[in-house]
């Protein structure tokens, strides 16, 4: 799923380029584009013998290339494009903020309501199917929710760095959690702390926000990893 996140983020560049060329809202078009890409990836994963990595790898590079090609048609410096590539929290418009809030609440509601089913499907889709779960519906909705979540984070962290928010907090939580509940709670809390701390540091030192958030998370991960190894060594 980490590669899926990275792939969707990069693929969204084509949607952003279309929006910039057509003078539409980039986030809105990127969401629609990422949903289409996510659906195509899902269908190809299920209907062909191609590996998931191959499918995502091809779509991710092809969509990004399409984005670069389309943007080359627009003359002059593109500040908005740079903000999408590397993130700029100050460039978020009020409409986009409302969009982020509405979609984030929708995704959160889906995750809470279908928490057990999603986990069971992710663990083992065959036994989930035998348990009477509509596996296809859950998987497609999860893909779409992930795709939309990633695009929503693009304006903050940028296309290049946004997948770090999927990977780093969960990886830190995995090092410290002793239960699944602990993992989920710690992941959410860590995400919030890392983003807020990163924004604070970027403001204080006048550093780029996206990169500072990712480096804050990475530093936290390294420290936690070392401490967990020391604790494990002492207890053994």
């Amino acid at each position: 799923m980490a590669f899926f996140g990275d792939g969707i983020a990069h693929a969204s560049l084509a949607g952003i380029a279309i929006a910039i060329l057509a003078d539409l809202n980039p986030i809105l078009i990127a969401i629609v584009f990422s949903i289409i890409i996510a659906l195509i990836i899902y269908l190809l994963e299920k209907k062909t013998s191609l590996s998931s990595d191959t499918i995502i790898g091809i779509f991710f590079t092809a969509s990004m290339s399409l984005g670069v090609l389309l943007i080359s048609f627009k003359e002059g410096y593109q500040p908005e494009l740079i903000s999408f590539l590397f993130g700029n929290i100050l460039a978020i418009r009020v409409f986009e903020l409302y969009l982020i809030v509405i979609l984030a609440i929708s995704i959160l509601t889906f995750l809470i309501l279908f928490f057990r089913k999603i986990t069971l499907v992710v663990f083992d889709r065959e036994t989930a199917y035998i348990s009477g779960i509509n596996v296809t519906a859950i998987e497609i909705t999860l893909y779409l929710a992930l795709a939309v979540s990633i695009v929503l984070g693009v304006k903050i962290l940028g296309i290049v760095l946004v997948s770090a928010l999927l990977i780093i907090p969960a990886s830190i939580a995995k090092l410290v959690a002793s239960s699944f509940k602990g993992l989920v709670v710690a992941s959410v809390i860590l995400s919030e702390i890392i983003v807020i701390l990163g924004i604070f540091l970027s403001y204080y030192f006048n550093w780029p926000t996206g990169a500072t958030i990712v480096l804050t998370g990475t530093a936290w991960f390294i420290v936690t990893f070392i401490f967990s190894k020391i604790l494990k060594f002492k207890s053994s």
Binding site: E126, S131, K174, L183
Partner: peptide
């Protein structure tokens, strides 16, 4: 199933795992 392959480092307790069953 024959092989229940999952990430062994995934922190889920037996109770939590059983609680997933619908």
């Amino acid at each position: 199933p024959q092989r229940f392959s999952f990430d062994k480092s995934f922190p889920i307790t037996v109770d939590e795992f059983l609680n997933l069953e619908i």
